[in-house]
């Protein structure tokens, strides 16, 4: 099953690397231009569920890595059945100085809150997302707080440390 999928992928997409670290889990690394087509390919193969969309800040490589985890609800019943019980991890790197990517809402509608979250916490813009409004955070931050160059310790000292304690001299 995995071998067949691997052959099919390498025939369809250029420069795709398919590895499998564990049973039932396949990691596909692809360049960002082909990611949307790859996700459509998997959706057509029965991977109908986007389990997670996340981002990793690879500051040493000057890139953000977007991670899509896809699964299928269909059961693995026969040889030509859709690949149930398989977990697909699709990774693609986008440049850190131009953090923009296409929204996958029209492929997986449940990506909407994930993309809002990543936009808020990593500052990655998703083209085609209609509602990139704040989701969790209450305060304004100098840079998005999940980026690796966000100095939490200094931020805490500057913001929460500067709030004075309530003393007897005040009133």
């Amino acid at each position: 099953m995995i071998e067949q999928l691997k052959r099919e992928l390498e025939a369809t997409f250029k420069g795709v690397s398919v590895t499998s670290e564990a049973d039932r889990r396949i990691t596909v690394v692809v360049d960002p231009l082909q990611t949307i087509a790859l996700l459509r390919f998997f959706k057509d193969r029965g991977f109908s569920h986007l389990a997670l969309l996340s981002a990793v800040d690879l500051i040493d490589k000057h890139a953000f890595e977007l991670v899509y985890i896809l699964t299928s609800y269909a059961e693995d019943t026969g040889e030509d059945a859709v690949p149930g019980e398989l977990i697909l991890v699709v990774k693609s790197m986008i440049p850190r100085d131009k953090p923009t990517f296409k929204s996958v809402i029209n492929i997986y509608p449940n990506a909407e809150p994930y993309e809002r979250e990543i936009h808020e916490l990593f500052g990655i813009h998703f083209d085609g997302h209609r509602r990139l409004t704040p989701l969790f955070l209450e305060r304004q931050y100098p840079i998005p707080p999940f980026r690796k160059d966000f100095d939490t310790r200094r931020y805490v000292e500057d913001v929460f440390g500067s709030i004075p304690a309530i003393g007897d001299e005040e009133g």
């Binding site: 707080p145 931020y155 805490v156 929460f160």
Partner: peptide, 20 residues
């Protein structure tokens, strides 16, 4: 004092600064 979240960007550290 924030506990294990002492350097978290989004956690209030000293609650007695805001309510008694």
């Amino acid at each position: 004092n924030g506990g294990m979240y002492w350097d978290s960007y989004n956690t209030i550290k000293h609650l007695d600064k805001y309510i008694p």
